[in-house]
Structure formats: structure tokens, C-alpha cells
Design a binder for these strands. Structure first.
Lengths: 158, 158
DNA sequence: CAAAATAATTATTGACCATAATCATTATTC
DNA sequence: GAATAATGATTATGGTCAATAATTATTTTG
């Protein structure tokens, strides 16, 4: 016989009170982000890509000749951490690294045909996976959400 | 096919073209999230808290007697990773851990008066810091964003 | 009672991110 | 025009974090 006072104490779905965290937008952003990640990562994994390598390949595809420090700024990652990622993309024949003649410290990054094709396929799959997660939003809600999020691209004015 | 005068679908920086990443909501969520974090973390740091310890303290404050596994589910963190966090909160006298008499495997977590006060102060500061970051949004936009993000609380239907 | 399940803990691992140091090249300045 | 500083890429390193497995204590189940 089940005791009436024995609480599940687990299954903390609707039974949990939260007066603070839920009102913090940053917290909500992270939670929503965590919901989208697994599906997107699985999609990219099918093509041997992680989020960072996909991002690099994508930006390089869109900006042929971009140099590594430019890429680092665009993706907001430390340029030192880009090195191994670009090593791998180059190794797989997805991008080329060429010294720029006018400044031989720099490397110009360009996606190969294979790289561009992979980018397109992976982007399609990732977009597809994302669509499933965001199916719970209406079309208007999705576009409005995107519009608002785009407002955060520029650095916060100090 | 890459043209300098081509109008970028999205602006990732000065002169950077991005036809793919910027349209991915997950990517935007992460970027927006990364914008909010530093300020919030600094605010919490003033009170000797990190995001995870603040979250724990806050949920415990709102749910006196919650057990660790319940907290883990609520915060979506591995319960094994909670241990050290709770150790520290207990050490600082912000929460108490008491065995549940009806089930001596469990520990009931309760915030002390000091813990509740700290939670309130920290929450105020964090909220304040967040407000600055989100000042670029109108009041309607903020509430709408929050409303939409709340829709992601429940797990994606499989 | 024996065996399985659950709660908390510990230990360990790998991913990820930031920092500093190094090397080659270019820009500067006196 | 040499000495010095600054820049781009690289390498090495350390710290934080999240996920996993193994351990112990307790409770539930068959």
C-alpha cells in the first residue's frame, strides 16, 4: 500500500518551484541551446565534422582567402585553437592553406570543391535536424526569435 | 563565384560573409548566450558563487527538502557532479544536508537563512547585470523572447 | 533471505577554452 | 639601415567542466 505522504521526490518535472532562474534570460538561452545541440551534433558527425570544424569550413567556404586570425575573430574562438582544426580540414582535402605573397606571415584559407560540397551537405542535414527541434515553434516565432538573436551579434556597448 | 560586392546574407563581422551559420538558431542561441555569461558570472563571483552553485542554492531555496537526485534532474546536471558543489555550499553554511529518516539513502537539502539571503542578493545582482546586456531589447522583445524560450523546458517529443 | 534497484559518492577521463611561450615575418623608429 | 617592436601562426600547457564507471550504503522486490 502506497503511503500518502511518501513523495516521489524524484521526477522533478512540474513539482519543482523556481522563482529566480527561470526569469533569467541567459539561463533560458543556455537551456534552449542545450536542447538543440545533440541533434545538430549528430547530424554533423555523419560527415565527420564537429561544430567548430563545420563552422570553420562554412565561413571559409563563404569567404575564400580569409586568413586565420580573421576566421578566429569571425567565430570568436582563440586563433591558437584553430590550428588543429584547420590541420584536419586541410588533411582531409577540404580546404587549402596558402601563404599570402604580400604578407608571408599569413595563410589564405580556401575551401576546395570537395569542401564546399561537404559544407552544403552538412549544412542541409544540420538545418534539417534543427528544424525538428524547433518544430514546436510556429514559423513566425522562429523568424522572430532569429531576428532578436541577431541583435546580439555586435559586442555590448561598454 | 565569390564577389566582394555580394550582399552578405548575414553579417558576422566587418566584411565577413555567412550564408549558413547565421541562419541556424542553435548557433545564434549559443552566441547570444556567450554574450550574457561574462557579466552574470562576474556578478555571481562577487558573492563567491559560480553559475552551478548559484543554481543549486536557488533551487534549494525554492524547494526546501529537495534531494540531490531531484536537484540533478531539475538542473540537468549529473548528480555525481553535484557532490562537490553541495559540499562547498554546506561548508559555507548556506545549506544543510540531512538524511531523510524514511529513506536513509537520501539527503534532504535545505537552505539556511544565510543561504537564502545570499541567494537573494546574488539573484538581484545577476538580474541587474543581465538587464544591462539585454538593454538593447525592448521590454516586449524581452518578454517575448522569454516566453519562447520557456517552450523548450520540456524534452523534445521523440 | 537473496537479488535487484536506488542514492550518494569517488575517481577518472576526455573535451574544451584560455594563456603563455616560441618562431618567422613585417613594421617601426632612431 | 640596423635595432626594436608588432603581428600571424604555431606549440605547449593548465584549468574547468561534463560524462562515465566503479563503490558503498540502503531499500525494494521476488
Amino acid at each position: 500500500m502506497a503511503q500518502p505522504d511518501k513523495i516521489p521526490a524524484n521526477d522533478t518535472g512540474p513539482g519543482i518551484v523556481d522563482t529566480v532562474l527561470g526569469e533569467m534570460i541567459g539561463y533560458r538561452l543556455k537551456r534552449a541551446y542545450m536542447q538543440t545541440q545533440p541533434a545538430a551534433l549528430r547530424a554533423l558527425e555523419e560527415h565527420g565534422l564537429r561544430m567548430v570544424s563545420f563552422s570553420c569550413l562554412s565561413i571559409i567556404t563563404d569567404n575564400p582567402g580569409i586568413v586565420q586570425s580573421g576566421l578566429a575573430v569571425a567565430l570568436q574562438v582563440e586563433r591558437s585553437n584553430l590550428v588543429v582544426v584547420l590541420d584536419e580540414l586541410e588533411e582531409r582535402g577540404l580546404i587549402t592553406r596558402e601563404r599570402v605573397p604580400t604578407d608571408r606571415r599569413r595563410y589564405a584559407l580556401t575551401a576546395t570543391l570537395r569542401g564546399r560540397r561537404l559544407r552544403d551537405r552538412a549544412a542541409g542535414r544540420a538545418h534539417e535536424a534543427e528544424a525538428k527541434v524547433f518544430a514546436r515553434l510556429s514559423e513566425e516565432e522562429r523568424t522572430f526569435l532569429l531576428t532578436i538573436l541577431k541583435r546580439f551579434e555586435d559586442k555590448p556597448e561598454s
